[in-house]
Simulated scan of single mutants.
Amino acid sequence: MKKYLISLEKDAQRRELFFSQPDTSDFEVFNAINTMGLSQAELEKTFDFAAFKNAYHRDVTKGEIGCTLSHLNVYKKVIEDDAIDERDYVLVCEDDVLFAENFNENLTALLQENLTADIILVGQSKIPSFDDKELAVNYPTTFGFLQKPVGKTKYRYAYPYRNYFAGTVAYLIKKSACRRFWREVQRLPATYWLADDFILFGQQFGLDILVVRPLMAIENPNLTSNLEALRGSLDNNMAKKLMKFPLKKLLAIKRNLSCLH
């Protein structure tokens, strides 16, 4: 399976930290598109600022544009690679990813399952740990015994209560799904979406998206200087999240019963 690492060329320290992890030597590095030195006029050639604001009700940042364009260009490389079958998955990661123990072995077990989804989120951003309570409360799936086991590992896959913004730290995507993205790029005057708008990708692109629990990858805490602030923010909002949890859980159970076979 092809594996891609998206990383800014200038971020040598991040790359060094990434490749210090086991089983990473087979990743192909894609030099991320650095948009910080470009003007809005230059960026408007490939990104629709007005469409973004209409969709997200705020202005886009240059970093977000660079992220979206970088992931799209990885998809282009996948499409152009004749060695990759339309049904094959590729792994796309960013250079701040931290893999769980035995990641490669567990990923192999996941790929041996009878998977048909277009995208499988094996990682998530802005989560302090691989099995954090935030996952269960704010992003619930169905009951554990109803989730699909991944071989003899501790991992399971399922649908979340609904698609959500999970970040793009680590995910599997089929070549056919990469092609679906580029059909949208060619159809529209310019790209306008966030790289992790899995709500849009499900609703408008018609992509089937699964999640893995616990997570196989998170953002590396050594690169997340505000991790304690993040943890505090998540805890402060926990009461409100717990109030919404019963409905989310019910929606997750209903979705998995109707979709996960």
Results as ranks from 00 to 15, higher is better:
Met1Phe: 13
Met1Val: 14
Lys2Cys: 06
Tyr4Leu: 10
Ser7Asn: 15
Leu8Asn: 10
Glu9Val: 10
Glu9Ala: 14
Lys10Ile: 11
Gln13Cys: 04
Arg14Leu: 10
Arg15Leu: 11
Arg15Trp: 10
Leu17Ala: 13
Gln21His: 09
Pro22Ala: 08
Pro22Cys: 04
Thr24Ile: 11
Asp26Leu: 13
Phe30Cys: 10
Phe30Trp: 09
Phe30Pro: 07
Asn31Ala: 14
Ile33Trp: 07
Ile33Ser: 06
Met36Ser: 15
Gln40His: 13
Ala41Phe: 12
Leu43Glu: 06
Glu44Met: 08
Lys45Asp: 04
Lys45Thr: 07
Thr46Asp: 12
Phe52Ser: 05
Lys53Gly: 00
Ala55Leu: 10
Tyr56Lys: 11
Tyr56Val: 06
Asp59Phe: 08
Thr61Gly: 13
Lys62Leu: 13
Gly63His: 08
Gly63Val: 07
Ile65Asp: 08
Cys67His: 02
Leu69Trp: 07
Leu69Val: 07
Ser70Asn: 11
His71Lys: 08
Asn73Val: 00
Tyr75Val: 02
Lys76Gln: 08
Lys76Met: 01
Arg87Leu: 09
Tyr89Ala: 07
Cys93Thr: 15
Glu94Val: 10
Asp96Ile: 04
Glu101Asn: 09
Asn102Asp: 14
Glu105Phe: 08
Glu105Val: 13
Glu105Gly: 06
Leu110Pro: 02
Gln112Ile: 03
Gln112Val: 02
Thr116Asn: 14
Ala117Arg: 04
Asp118Ser: 09
Asp131Ser: 15
Asp132Tyr: 11
Glu134Pro: 00
Val137Glu: 04
Asn138His: 14
Asn138Tyr: 13
Asn138Asp: 15
Tyr139Gly: 01
Pro140Ala: 03
Thr141Tyr: 04
Phe143Cys: 01
Phe145Asn: 08
Pro149Val: 08
Pro149Cys: 08
Lys152Trp: 01
Thr153Val: 03
Lys154Asn: 12
Arg156Trp: 01
Ala158Tyr: 00
Tyr161Thr: 06
Phe165Met: 14
Thr168Pro: 02
Ala170Leu: 08
Ala170Ile: 06
Tyr171Glu: 07
Lys174His: 01
Ala177Pro: 01
Arg180Cys: 12
Trp182Ile: 02
Val185Leu: 00
Gln186Thr: 12
Ala190Gly: 04
Leu194Ile: 06
Leu194Gln: 09
Asp197Ser: 02
Asp197Ala: 03
Asp197Cys: 00
Phe198Asn: 07
Ile199Glu: 05
Leu200Glu: 12
Phe201Ile: 02
Phe201Asp: 02
Phe201Arg: 03
Gln204Phe: 15
Gln204Trp: 13
Gly206Val: 13
Leu207Cys: 08
Val211Glu: 09
Arg213Gln: 05
Arg213Lys: 13
Leu215Arg: 02
Leu215Asp: 01
Leu215Val: 04
Met216Glu: 03
Ile218Arg: 01
Asn222Val: 05
Ser225Tyr: 11
Ser225Cys: 01
Ser225Val: 10
Asn226Val: 00
Leu227Asp: 02
Leu227Pro: 03
Ser233Ala: 15
Asn236Val: 02
Lys240Ala: 15
Lys241Phe: 10
Pro246Arg: 07
Pro246Ile: 11
Leu251His: 12
Ala252Val: 04
Ile253Tyr: 09
Lys254Leu: 13
Lys254Ile: 13
Arg255Phe: 04
Asn256Arg: 03
Leu257Glu: 00
